[in-house]
Amino acid sequence: MSDASIQSTTDSREAGFGDYFALLKPRVMSLVVFTALVGLLVAPVGVNPVVGLASILFIAVGGGASGALNMWWDADIDRKMRRTQSRPIPSGKVTEGEAFAIGMALSAMAVVMLGLAANLMAAALLAFTIFFYVVIYTMWLKRWTPQNIVIGGAAGAFPPMIGWAVATGGISIESVLMFALTFAWTPPHFWALALFTKGDYANAGVPMLTVTHGRKATRAHILGYSLVLAVVAIALGLTSIGGPVYMAVALILNGMFIKGAWDVFRRDDAASDADAHKAERGLFKLSLAYLFLHYGALLIEASLKPFGLGGWG
């Protein structure tokens, strides 16, 4: 082996800025930014745009930091799952120690800065979100209970509540229902994914519902949570941030979602394998649009209010 070949091997494993950025789970961060922004914009109190921008950024950094801490703790299982093998730690570009240091430093910075930029309630909610995701979900529940996704979903559901707290300094029925919307959406979203990425979680020893209780039970759980999700989504439409536009969107999407969940429930694995998991993939895709369109509809209601439209009146 020549010197040149040794050098090229080293180069390919050297972490660039993008590898450190990837520790922050940018795709998850985009959901955090969007839902937190909606929470902030639909609140009845206005916020200075610079304060709002800074707050959303610190919420995003806090969310990203918890992602880095998740990757630090889960490096062993990330190496075993195909979906996560290319992450910065399993691929050998970033060390576990670096991920831990970045996660802790950015967590502390994000919470302190959000407290200074917005208020203590928002900062406390962000700190709790990071704690919940890293300690309660990642370290404790993920490897222990098949309900990991249900409880872990709470961490991803906090951002709109934090955005609302940035504007109002408090918690209200509207922000709790926005939390509940993402919370109830998470299980059917992930279980639909788990139904067509067979084996990955089992190989890693993560007690996914599909592994511990079987796929039939998972299909039933998806249907059950879809019904709960519909109730929450409609209830949110009856609050001060809902309105006719949101309600129309919610009725259509929840009808489609329950139909999709029913189709998944009625199938068995043989039927699912025969058409390459068409219904499961379809429900997963719908779930992506579902959340985006619900929050988008809330945003439309808020943007109509200055013109005397939007809301219930």
Binding site: G16, Y20, V50
Partner: peptide
Amino acid sequence: SRNIGVGVALILFVGLVYGL
């Protein structure tokens, strides 16, 4: 790339705190 990235991030952070 790492050094430029960190530099840009720090400059943006300083700008953000100033704006805030």
